[in-house]
Amino acid sequence: MIGTDTGMMPSSFQTLTPRRVIGIDLSMTSTGLAVIANGIIETHTVTSKADAGTLRSFIDRSERIAHQIDEVVQFHGTDLVVIEGLIYHGKSSSLDKINAHWWMVVKFICEYVDQEPVVVNSSQRCKYATGGASAKKDIVLAAVIKRYPQADPKGNDEADAVIFAAMGARHLGYPVEASLPLVNLEAMEAVRWGA
């Protein structure tokens, strides 16, 4: 209990529990990361060099990236992890490896952190950032720079991660934006936020 001018009240009413959200724009080469805690946004990038071309070296590389991400953002103590969804179409000849890497990192988060990440697809990310579901990467980057200047994203990967984290923070009831147009907010309704 805390004493006040009007008497005693439970201390839980005096402070809000800090919420911590991680946004991940996953990649085999350059993973963008954003952490939002107490309204402060931090951005990071985890890079990785090519593996030796064998299945074992690919698996080792993927696991190493997952651990590097954890070293940077520290998953434990996080309220919510938001990650970009799988790529179902694309021109990359490594699409199978890209998607396998995604599953391996998601498995790491689920098992190591004991938390299932929320998946946001690219059109939902674009809509939340710009109001348009098919905005180009540089348009999203420009929107992030304008709306979240403190994030200071170093490129598209970090900008995308900021959007994922911002969506997560809003879902938890701690939005980092003073306001957003209704068309942008429609992106929130399309996400499966889980239980």
Rank of each mutant, 00 (worst) to 15 (best):
R19K: 15
R19D: 08
R19Y: 09
R19F: 07
R20F: 02
V21W: 10
I22E: 07
I22M: 03
I22D: 06
I22N: 05
G23P: 10
G23C: 11
D25S: 02
D25R: 06
D25A: 02
L26C: 09
L26F: 14
S27K: 05
M28V: 00
M28T: 00
T29N: 13
T29F: 10
T29Q: 13
T31K: 10
T31E: 08
T31P: 11
G32P: 02
L33I: 04
L33M: 08
L33D: 07
A34H: 03
V35P: 03
I36K: 06
I36N: 07
G39Q: 06
I40T: 12
I41V: 15
I41A: 05
I41S: 05
E42A: 12
T43N: 05
T43C: 14
H44R: 13
H44I: 00
T45L: 13
T47N: 15
K49D: 14
D51M: 04
D51I: 05
D51K: 02
A52R: 14
A52W: 08
A52Y: 09
G53I: 10
G53S: 09
T54M: 11
L55V: 10
L55M: 08
S57Q: 10
F58Y: 13
F58D: 01
F58W: 04
F58G: 00
I59G: 01
I59T: 08
D60L: 14
R61K: 15
R61D: 07
S62N: 10
S62G: 12
S62V: 11
R64T: 14
R64W: 10
R64P: 05
I65F: 08
I65Q: 07
A66C: 09
H67V: 14
Q68R: 15
Q68F: 01
I69H: 12
E71I: 00
E71T: 13
E71C: 13
V72D: 04
V72M: 07
Q74V: 06
Q74I: 05
Q74C: 08
Q74K: 14
Q74N: 12
F75N: 04
F75C: 06
H76Y: 01
G77Q: 04
G77Y: 03
T78K: 02
D79W: 01
D79Y: 01
D79V: 03
L80D: 09
L80Q: 12
L80N: 04
V81L: 06
V82G: 03
E84D: 11
E84G: 11
I87Y: 09
I87W: 01
Y88A: 06
Y88V: 08
H89M: 04
H89R: 11
H89P: 00
G90R: 04
G90V: 02
K91T: 13
K91C: 00
S94V: 00
S94N: 15
S94A: 15
L95K: 05
L95Y: 01
D96Q: 12
K97N: 14
K97H: 15
K97F: 08
I98V: 15
I98M: 15
N99Y: 08
A100P: 00
H101W: 04
H101N: 13
W102K: 02
W102S: 01
W103E: 10
